[in-house]
Design a protein around this nucleic acid. Structure first.
Length: 481
RNA sequence: CGGGGCGUAGCGCAGCUUGGUAGCGCACUUGGCUUGGGACCAAGGGGUCGGAGGUUCAAAUCCUCUCGCCCCGACCA
């Protein structure tokens, strides 16, 4: 194979300019386009379908854990938003307001939702009377708006798509269990469907959700060594139930406030998928979320129409095990198609030419490894189904290997700073738990505490990487998106 | 929101310094010929130069404002 880069000259190499590479891939793989509104993107069919696959994967898991979908309004009255002080303060700078409609000024201005805790709190107040009404396990698929200063396609856009789960429970313990259960759902989804390994953990006080008692996250590592928060699960305690007066009569005759949780995952994970798996030739899609899993490219020569017919037949056979596209366009050469579909990240390409038919074989080319396999046409559906699973698994293993290689311990501040500056990646270090140390590290290295991993090693660092006092936790530091 | 860079055909760019009414490659259309890693030939179509205002006989080019994108910083999923 000749030099790879010559084939995809439209894409900036990763090591030259990772940000530009990211933008190039999104454009060339036809995932999204910039919209006429600042910071907003259009999800093109190819990009939106990836989101639909994510929705399927998540929604199935939500249903399996007893949740049901509902839909709450886009507009939130200012009075509702103002009820929870910490919450308002957190979101105020990024709220768009509707102040007039129908040519008249509104008596109360309406925020376009940045998240729905408040309006859902208001409704739960009306719906919950008895312990028999609990738990309430509701999820919402919707768009939200946050007027961010700096935007980047998928990772941070003014309007984005997500799901937000909102649950109410009788006891603190039950709510806490829910928080951890959904964090685990996110971890499983990301690792299984998107082949992205993550570190589950708890957010520090300064990084937690505005209004939460505790925030948990799963953190992923991008190929440029920066971290990305891929999903969050919040234990809201009774913060919202107190301000929205969500009380129930318990079986002991006492009126009590419910314990609530919320958890969300956004279209940002598409950005994560691009930056975890993509390479210099473009997008690399994990089979489970790939809109097209297999592209069949017949090698068409004049006067050999049977190749096209056989390719069609093979593609049809494969539809029982995979999402298949047959590219039998005559106006493009096979080589052009190979590059095009690789750029678009299709996990598996099947080449079928006259020579293959003579030998009753097909050529299978893996997008993730570049490997070409010559396989028998007998049992092709089984072969392909198995290979797609192998690709999915190996993509995850590869990403996990990358994360492991780029997770380094640091015992001292100097070590931490050196790793962050020169190698990036995750840095494991001790932390005394004080906000001052966290802030100092952030100021001097631009690295933040991504989370306090749930799995705390027995032999972890003994001292705070900043002040040297006894460490309370082993945490992950990284520069983040 | 501060600092830097860039907006000219769908994409990538030249032209701007020194004003004279727009060009190249790819893509696109038609025909031919091809097809195992981005073929070739021929003939075509497409841009009020991001937008607004100003200077000028004349503005892609000079001036002012504005919008958007990228990179670097402070806030966030």
């Amino acid at each position: 194979m000749a030099k790879d880069k010559e084939f995809v000259k439209e894409i900036t190499p990763q090591n030259e300019d990772f940000s530009q590479w990211y933008i190039d891939v999104i454009k060339k793989a036809d995932l999204a386009d910039y919209a006429p509104v600042r910071g907003c993107i259009v999800f093109k069919p190819e990009g939106y379908e990836i989101w639909e696959r994510c929705q399927e994967g998540l929604d199935r898991r939500f249903k399996a854990t007893g949740h049901r979908n509902a839909y709450f309004p886009l507009f939130i009255p200012e009075s509702l938003l103002l009820k929870e002080a910490e919450h308002v303060e957190g979101f105020n700078p990024e709220l768009p307001w509707v102040t007039e409609a129908g040519g008249e000024k509104l008596t109360e201005r309406l925020a376009v939702r940045p998240t729905s805790e408040t309006i859902i709190g208001e409704m739960y107040h009306r719906w919950i009377q008895s312990h028999r009404d609990l738990p309430v396990l509701i999820n919402q698929w919707c768009n939200v708006v946050r007027w961010e200063k700096r935007t980047l396609p998928f990772l941070r856009t003014t309007e984005f798509l997500w799901q937000e789960g909102h649950t109410a429970h009788r006891t603190e313990e039950e709510a806490r269990t829910e928080v951890m259960r959904m964090l685990e759902v996110y971890r499983d989804f990301l690792e299984t469907d998107l082949a992205i390994p993550v570190v589950p953990g708890r957010k520090s006080e300064s990084e937690k959700f505005a209004g939460a008692v505790e925030t948990y996250s799963i953190e992923a590592l991008m190929k440029d060594g920066k971290a990305l928060q891929a999903g969050t699960s919040h234990f809201l305690g009774q913060n919202f139930s107190r301000v929205f007066d969500i009380q129930f009569l318990d079986d002991d005759g006492q009126r009590k406030y419910v314990w609530t949780t919320s958890w969300g995952m956004t279209t940002r994970i598409i950005g994560a998928m691009i930056m975890v798996h993509g390479d210099d030739r473009g997008l690399v899609l994990p089979p489970r979320v790939a809109p097209t899993q297999v592209v069949v490219v017949p090698i068409l020569k004049k006067g050999q129409d049977e190749v096209r017919a056989r390719a069609q037949q093979i593609a049809d056979e494969l539809r029982s095990v995979a999402r298949v596209h047959l590219d039998d366009r005559a106006e493009y050469s096979p080589g052009w198609k190979f590059n095009e579909w690789e750029m678009r990240g299709i996990p598996l390409r099947i080449e079928i030419g006259p020579k293959d038919l003579e030998k009753n074989q097909a050529v299978l080319a893996r997008r993730d490894s570049g490997e070409k396999l010559f396989v028998s046409l007998d049992n092709l559906p089984e072969t392909v189904a198995g290979l797609l699973e192998t690709i999915q698994k190996e993509m995850y293993e590869r990403a996990r290997g990358f994360m492991a290689e780029n997770t380094r311990p640091a015992a001292t501040f100097e070590e931490l700073a050196e790793i962050i500056e020169n190698k990036r990646g995750f840095v494991q270090a001790g932390w005394c738990g004080k906000a001052a140390c966290e802030a100092e590290v952030k100021e001097k290295t631009k690295a933040t505490i991504r989370n306090i991993p749930l799995e705390q090693p027995d032999n972890g660092p003994r001292h705070c990487v900043c002040c040297g006092e006894p460490a309370q936790y082993k945490v992950i530091f990284a520069r983040a998106y």
